[in-house]
Amino acid sequence: MHEFDALLSPKTDRIYADSPDPAIRELALFLKSRPLSPFSRSIAVRMVDCGSSNDVELEEGLTNAPQVDCERFGIHFVASPRHADVLIASGPVSVNMKLALEKTYRAMSRPKAVVAAGDGACTGGLLAGAHGVYKSGRVEEVIPVDVKVAGNPPAPYELVLGMLKAGQILSKKRI
């Protein structure tokens, strides 16, 4: 059956270890080996775009598409950093967004974990060195980073895995 056929009854992707999609395979392995911890079942995520070309945001938006449906993995995007356990930031961090990123991070209660999503956030990416980019552009320059997800941009399942890994790190952090 063709994927467009089933449209008016949308189907979520099956997560299994021998899927043709490498991102789904990796996610399946992670879910199988994931130990139970206070945060492993549900994490609240706040996203901040600090200078990406909106590619990471569009892919994050699509983690809510019915095929991916990130809420079945316990991931919930929240409106306020006060409600969030995990901050997902894309980059390269622009000089004009540095302050907003710091403030958002400070507004989160502990324990908190940070995901740097996309090449720009991890390494500075293609635009590292441009005059509007803060230092090297890495999110690490501004706030501590726990998980890095590479990609230009990372696909929805790669982002899901990154956020779940951050949720696991949370349980090891001191309150």
């Binding site: 775009d49 200078g51 990406s52 390269p92 622009s94 000089v95 004009n96 967004m97 907003a100 635009l127 060195g129 441009a130 005059h131 509007g132 980019v133």
Partner: peptide
């Protein structure tokens, strides 16, 4: 606006 100004034109 301009929170995302990276300076692409210049760069």
């Amino acid at each position: 606006l301009s929170f995302l100004h990276r300076g692409i034109e210049d760069f």
